[in-house]
Design a binder for these strands. Structure first.
Length: 430
DNA sequence: TCTGGGGTCCTAGGACCC
DNA sequence: TCTGGGGTCCTAGGACCC
């Protein structure tokens, strides 16, 4: 038995916690670079702001609708997520942190009425952390996910589902008929694992609802589509195929990529950006105690600028030996091999791949090592940055603040780091 | 003028090697 | 006349998730 807890319009709820004046107002949170809407309040959704809608388009179409737009404040969301998840953990014996605003809870062996218990946890999160949540319960993760959707829709779209399913929806506690009715009222694209493409194909095949998928023959799902979809069908039938993952394996790949605030033409500016991406990736690498065996660099122009020449290339560079060194020059060398002058570059990034645990690396004789062992330097950097704030020390070739504006992203509308930076903590006046 | 970032998994073609 | 098969690596792209 599984529960899925999620925070409603999570980023918007985090912002409203510290600015109650935003309650009842259409609010959106923008992606990095203030590009497009990644979170929307209910009011903003009702105005017609769609998922991923570009900010310039929102302004053009809804400029005078009173929408408040904010730049993403991931330090704030991450901190509130930790608080929410630690309270959510009280629902059952095991927990999987699925995303910043969602968590699966394993409920096997829990005595008593799970619906009531879930409702208590929901209220506790609301009271202790301040984030409104919904909870879905089912015998498989896919059903718990679907139940979570029902809990949300029953509250917000009157008539979509029976109103008593709002906030907490326990599919496992329903009669077979009631559960079938819920599945029959759920459209294809609300099924976990069924995206835009697959739901199109399923519609063409004559299916319309989650109930239709649940009634499919799994072997047909497999032969006509894929093993992944077969698993989805079985999960909807109540056969658990996806286990709770409460101890996730270390990442297989670490990416650090950014769109630029302005088009970038020079190799010099790209090299600064790429250098910064490597340091960011290497920090994450050290945090999970891994080393990268290879590194991939890519650059590309903006696919949205139709009239302009397009260019997109990537290159994978093997590292002389696995490393998590912030200052690694391989990315800059790779960049040099794929760079072409005379283009407006819109985005670049670095993927660290072939990750392996740092512990098992055999030491070698450093007969021709040009960099030497810099692990203590990295340790010192991480400590300084942890104590004095991000980027207190950094690689100079990533550019100093004066000269990096050329590629740095726009983020003009960010709220303070209310909970993670001392000088940003709000002061309440008595 | 202005369109995110970070993941996983899968597929496919070409180069290269034996 | 008749021109293999299997493997790896690299690059590229698509589908899905949040």
């Amino acid at each position: 038995m599984f529960a899925l807890i999620d925070g409603h319009n999570f980023y918007v709820s985090c912002e409203r916690l510290f600015r109650p004046s935003l309650i009842g107002v259409p609010v959106i949170v923008l992606s990095n670079n203030d590009g497009c809407a990644i979170a929307r309040s209910e009011e903003a959704k009702r105005l017609g702001v769609t998922k991923g809608m570009p900010w310039f388009q929102i302004r053009k179409e809804l400029g005078n609708a009173g929408i408040v737009a904010l730049s993403a404040n991931f330090s704030l969301y991450g901190d509130l997520s930790n608080r929410m998840m630690s309270v959510a953990a009280g629902l059952g014996p095991t927990q999987e942190l699925y995303s910043i605003d969602e968590s699966f809870i394993g409920l096997d062996g829990m005595p008593g009425d799970l619906t009531t218990r879930a409702d208590h946890v929901r209220h506790r999160i609301r009271q202790w952390v301040g984030i409104p949540c919904g909870i879905g319960i089912g015998t498989t993760k896919t059903l718990a996910k679907l139940a979570n959707h029902v809990a949300k829709a029953a509250d917000r779209k009157p008539g979509s589902y029976p109103p008593e399913l709002a906030h907490v929806c326990n599919l496992a506690a329903m009669s077979d008929d009631a559960r079938r009715a819920v599945l029959a009222a759920t459209p294809l694209d609300e099924i976990w694992g069924v995206g835009r493409r697959l739901s199109e194909q399923l519609r063409d095949a004559g299916l319309a609802t989650a109930l239709d998928v649940a009634c499919m023959d799994p072997s047909v799902a497999r032969s006509r589509w894929s093993v992944v979809f077969e698993r989805t069908v079985r999960e909807l039938q109540g056969i658990s195929c996806i286990a709770l993952d409460d101890a996730p394996a270390p990442r297989k790949e670490i990416a650090s990529t950014r769109s630029f605030g302005h088009p970038v033409q020079t190799e010099h500016a790209l090299a600064q950006a790429v250098t910064e991406f490597v340091s960011r990736g290497a920090e994450k690498l050290r945090r999970q105690e891994s080393l990268a065996g290879r590194l991939m660099v890519f650059i590309h122009t903006s696919p949205f600028r139709r009239g302009e020449p397009q260019y997109s290339r990537s290159i994978t560079v093997p590292l002389r030996r696995p490393t998590s060194d912030t200052g690694h020059r391989a990315a800059v060398h790779g960049l040099h091999l794929i760079f072409r002058p005379g283009l407006n570059f819109a985005k670049a990034g670095v993927h660290l791949v072939d990750l392996q645990p740092a512990g098992v690396l055999q030491t070698e004789l450093d007969l021709d090592d040009d960099e030497g062992d810099r692990s203590s330097l990295m340790l010192a950097m991480d400590k300084i940055n942890a104590k004095h704030g991000k980027k207190s020390v950094f690689i100079a070739s990533a550019g100093t603040s004066e000269r990096r504006r050329e590629w740095e992203m726009r983020q003009d509308l960010r709220t303070p780091l209310y909970t993670t930076r001392l000088c940003d903590i709000p002061i309440a006046n008595a």
